[in-house]
Design a binder for these strands. Structure first.
Lengths: 113, 113
DNA sequence: GAATAATACATAAGAATCTAATGTATATTT
DNA sequence: AAATATACATTAGATTCTTATGTATTATTC
């Protein structure tokens, strides 16, 4: 089962930041594969969503890039800046709190208002 | 702390459906207040987001409406249809699974790829 | 009793962020 | 040699939200 895409909205940036925090340095294609691997293919990040997100993170100064050449093929590595690291902590804890809050709504079962 | 709005994206429809499943019958304004109450004001649903969502649920046959007059003021009550009830179960369990999957990404701490 | 806040509906322009499609090119596997 | 995988990127269109605005009634506060 693949999750309906609407659920990814709003969490993609946080996912990317967290992966960069855990892996020091990653390139785009690697991120798509890592997410697929970690989630048993339940979340698949499309390139059309990922690359603009990475570019936005760079424009916001949260990541810096570094090119690597594998033969003639280029890889663009992304790495968190200090600002990016603290932003990651914020975003991750916000998402965790959000999920805890959502559980209140999803789990309780009030039959009357 | 109010959650950044991007997190609401993709979950609003599920929240509304779940509240209707738990409360049998609700009107728009009541939904905004209930969410605020359940989440200690950490999630606040705006009217500009809620009403179009309710209209979409109705257009999709997931809810039916019923008008009530309180003096001269109208309340539009929303109630799940049988289709709406089964859709609610789907959406809720999908969101729960999604959150569990997200935890894998957020909690583990791989220092190497 | 006048002003303010709360209740209750609704729409609409604009922003953000995704999908799906398309493009280019190299490297690897069958 | 052909097909698949790797690796970047952009873009039209769809979806779904924010922010602002509009209308009107009812309740509260000074």
């Amino acid at each position: 089962m693949i999750f309906s895409s609407e659920l990814i909205k709003g969490t993609l940036k946080t996912i990317v930041l967290k992966l960069l925090a855990d892996n020091k340095k990653m390139y785009g294609y690697e991120i798509t594969q890592k997410v697929k691997e970690l989630t048993n293919s339940k979340i698949e990040i499309t390139e059309g969503a990922l690359y603009p997100t990475l570019h936005a993170l760079e424009a916001d100064g949260l990541v810096i890039t570094e090119l690597e050449y594998i033969g003639k093929r280029v890889r663009k590595h992304y790495k968190l800046t200090p600002t990016g690291k603290s932003k990651t902590k914020e975003k991750v804890s916000e998402l965790v709190e959000f999920m805890n809050t959502m559980k209140i709504i999803l789990d309780i079962n009030l039959q009357t208002a």
